[in-house]
C-alpha cells in the first residue's frame, strides 16, 4: 500500500525541496573560516534584522491536515486522536495511605487509618477517601467518601460527592469540599457534610512536611470537626466537636514507602465531651503512634 505513495514522492518534492535553501553553497571568503585551533573571541553581536513597523497579519489557522492528502485520512484521524492522548491526555492515579498506624496511649489501644485515592486527568478526577479507627474488637468509626474532583485553581481542587459512615452509625451525607496547597507548602482540606437527616457537619485538616534531611520528615498535622447541631446518636455536640493534633516523624526509605513514629493528641469539646463523659469515655487522649505512610 505504501509503494504507490512512495512513487508520488518526486512530485511532492517539488514544493518543499525547491524552496528549502541550499545552505551548503560555497561560502564567500570568510576571514574566520580558517581552522586555527586557537581560541577565537566571538565578534560583538550586531542587532538582529529589524521587524517592520507594520508587521504582516498572521494567516488564520488552517483546519485541514496536509498528511490526509497523502495517507488514508481515516488512519490519520485515528493517529491524531492517539497524538492528542499522548500529549497531555494521559490519565493517572494514586493510592495514598496517609496514616496507617497503631496507637498506644492513655485511652484504649487501637488502630487508625486515613487514605485517599484518585483516578483521572489533570482537571477532572474521581477521588475516594476513607478514614476511621478501631481496636481488636472491630471498627469503632469508619467512613468512605466518593467524590468528583475538579482543579479550580493552581493548587486547589473542588470536590463534591457523598460520604458514607459505616460506624458508629450507618449514615449518608452529601459532601462539598476542597483540597489545596497553601503558601509554605501547607496541605489543607476542608469539607461540609449534610446528612440524609439534615444534620450538618464540617471538617478542616492541615499538615506540613518539614524536611529535616532528604529522607527524614517531621509532619505536624491537625484535624478539627464541627457540627451545626447536637447529634445524640453519634455523640456529637454542636460547635467544635473534637480536635486532633499529631506530630509524626517518618523516614522515606523510598518516597512512596515511609514508616513513622509520632504522638497524637485528641480532645473532645463542649457537648461532645459531655456525651463522652456520659458514656464513660475519655475526653482527651494522648497516644504514641507507630505506622506506615505508603502510596503507589
Amino acid at each position: 500500500m505504501k509503494a504507490p505513495l512512495i512513487a508520488l514522492l518526486p512530485l511532492l518534492w517539488a514544493g518543499p525541496a525547491l524552496a528549502q535553501h541550499d545552505h551548503h553553497a560555497p561560502a564567500p571568503a570568510d576571514p574566520h573560516a580558517g581552522h586555527d585551533m586557537g581560541a577565537m573571541a566571538p565578534e560583538p553581536s550586531s542587532e538582529p534584522p529589524p521587524l517592520p513597523d507594520r508587521e504582516t497579519a498572521a494567516p488564520s489557522a488552517p483546519t485541514d491536515h496536509l498528511a490526509d492528502r497523502i495517507f488514508d485520512p481515516a488512519a490519520m484521524e485515528q493517529a491524531r486522536a492517539v497524538l492528542r492522548q499522548e500529549h497531555g491526555g494521559a490519565q493517572a492515579s494514586q493510592v495514598m495511605l496517609n496514616l496507617f498506624e497503631y496507637r498506644a496511649g492513655s485511652g484504649a489501644d487501637g488502630y487508625h487509618w486515613a487514605g485517599e485515592a484518585w483516578f483521572g486527568g489533570d482537571i477532572d478526577r474521581l477521588v475516594i477517601k476513607s478514614e476511621g479507627e478501631g481496636d481488636r474488637h472491630g471498627v469503632e468509626s469508619g467512613e468512605v467518601q466518593a467524590l468528583y474532583s475538579r482543579a479550580m485553581g493552581l493548587y486547589t481542587d473542588l470536590q463534591v460527592g457523598v460520604r458514607q459512615d459505616l460506624e458508629p452509625r450507618s449514615r449518608t451525607y452529601a459532601t462539598v469540599g476542597f483540597e489545596t496547597l497553601l503558601p509554605y507548602w501547607i496541605e489543607a482540606e476542608g469539607a461540609v457534610f449534610v446528612s440524609s437527616k439534615g444534620d450538618v457537619l464540617a471538617r478542616a485538616e492541615g499538615a506540613i512536611d518539614w524536611r529535616l534531611t532528604q529522607r527524614l520528615i517531621l509532619q505536624p498535622r491537625a484535624e478539627l470537626n464541627f457540627a451545626a447541631q447536637d447529634v445524640a446518636e453519634t455523640g456529637t455536640g454542636s460547635g467544635l466537636s473534637d480536635a486532633e493534633l499529631g506530630l509524626r516523624l517518618r523516614y522515606e526509605v523510598r518516597r512512596e514507602f515511609a514508616p513513622y513514629v509520632g504522638v497524637a493528641w485528641g480532645r473532645r469539646f463542649g457537648r461532645t465531651a459531655d456525651y463522652a463523659r456520659a458514656a464513660g469515655e475519655e475526653v482527651s487522649d494522648t497516644s504514641v503512634v507507630l505506622g506506615l505512610r505508603a502510596w503507589f
Partner: peptide, 27 residues
C-alpha cells in the same frame, strides 16, 4: 525532509503498525 517523511504519527503520517514496514525516502 518533506513533511510526510518527518515521522511524527498523527502529524506527518499515520505511524508504523506492528508487523508493518514503512519506507522513508528523501534526498
Amino acid at each position: 525532509v518533506p513533511f510526510e517523511m518527518d515521522g511524527v504519527p498523527g502529524v506527518s503520517f499515520p505511524g508504523i503498525k506492528p508487523g508493518e514496514t514503512f519506507v522513508y525516502e528523501f534526498k
